[in-house]
């Protein structure tokens, strides 16, 4: 389990990024962190992985305080950064060098993922494209079977077939003991993958809900006209009408459109929050 309690963090003393931030994440889920640029998604991820230290508050990740960066903590956490580091060695040498640090590393799984991603195992890491490097690091991260896998913009640089492959691999590999956290600007890439959505805005967590609860409470659909706009959280013009998000008043549960949800929460924060407060 992961718990952030009353976390305060700042890069510059007079400009706090987070103040009294609270967050609780359970095992066995894939969480999607959404937010505008500078909202603090990457900062939270770095705090969780022990790369940044909060100035105040308690941080408990898998029973450890990440700031101590203990080996037993680090071997259960893998952080796929947006800025990838790949040494000038072949993929198989990379495995030889770094897999021994992860006691649960599964070579067969790594081989399987790398094959599914269509990457040649004997390639030199520095000779690969950004997308291919990302595939290797993602495969490595998944093969470590760590309890917490944090991915910052994991789909950046991946081509369209690889994005689908990525979703398939990720959804198929998570176990009950694991927690996956992803952040992305390309929210459509996360469709059918994440089961919990966390939206950050102006350094605050303004929305944290389960996908099934969202589809139960909100309706995402198409409307030819805006008959009663006061009931609509968000609307967006599209050919022939509007894409709308509104309260689900007994309609059939619709598929959650993450991008539309994000815009609805950002634009109508209070209304959306009060909707979820209702039982």
């Amino acid at each position: 389990m992961i718990e952030l309690k009353d976390i305060s963090f700042y890069y510059k003393k007079n400009k706090p990024l987070f103040q009294d931030l609270n967050l609780k994440l359970e095992n066995g889920h894939i969480y999607g962190f959404l937010g505008k640029n500078g909202a603090g998604k990457t900062t939270i991820m770095k705090i969780l992985s022990g790369l940044l230290f909060p100035q105040a508050g308690n941080c408990n990740v898998l029973g450890f305080n990440p700031k101590y960066r203990q080996a037993s903590f680090l071997s259960d956490v893998f952080y796929v950064a947006e800025e990838l580091y790949t040494p000038s060695i072949t993929i198989s040498n990379y495995i030889k060098r770094y897999a021994p640090f992860y006691p649960n590393f599964d070579q067969n799984k790594f081989d399987q993922y790398i094959k599914e991603f269509n990457v040649e195992k004997n390639s030199l890491l520095t000779g690969l494209s950004y997308g291919q490097k990302k595939k290797v690091i993602l495969s490595f991260g998944l093969a470590t079977q760590c309890k917490l896998l944090i991915m910052d913009e994991p789909t950046n640089g991946l081509d369209i077939p690889s994005k689908a492959q990525f979703r398939k691999i990720l959804a198929g590999s998570i176990t009950k003991e694991q927690t996956f956290i992803l952040s992305t600007h390309q929210v459509k890439d996360l469709t059918n993958l994440i089961d919990n959505i966390i939206i950050l805005d102006q350094s605050k967590i303004i929305f944290h809900e389960n996908i099934s609860r969202i589809s139960e409470k909100m309706y995402f659909g198409f409307s030819q006209g805006l008959t009663s706009p006061e009931n609509v959280f968000y609307s967006e013009r599209c050919p022939g009408g509007y894409m709308i998000v509104k309260e689900n008043n007994g309609e059939v549960e619709s598929e959650v459109e993450i991008e539309t949800l994000f815009n609805a929460v950002i634009q109508n924060q209070a209304k959306v929050q009060s909707l979820f407060k209702k039982n």
Binding site: S49, G50, L51, R69, Q70, A71, S72, L74, S75, V77, F78, Y79, A81, E83, L84, Y85, Y98, F101, Y102
Partner: peptide, 18 residues
Amino acid sequence: NETGERMFYLNLPASHLE
């Protein structure tokens, strides 16, 4: 020195002492 490698090194599963 370099951010990407720095993250990788600090997150490599070994204690500070090691």
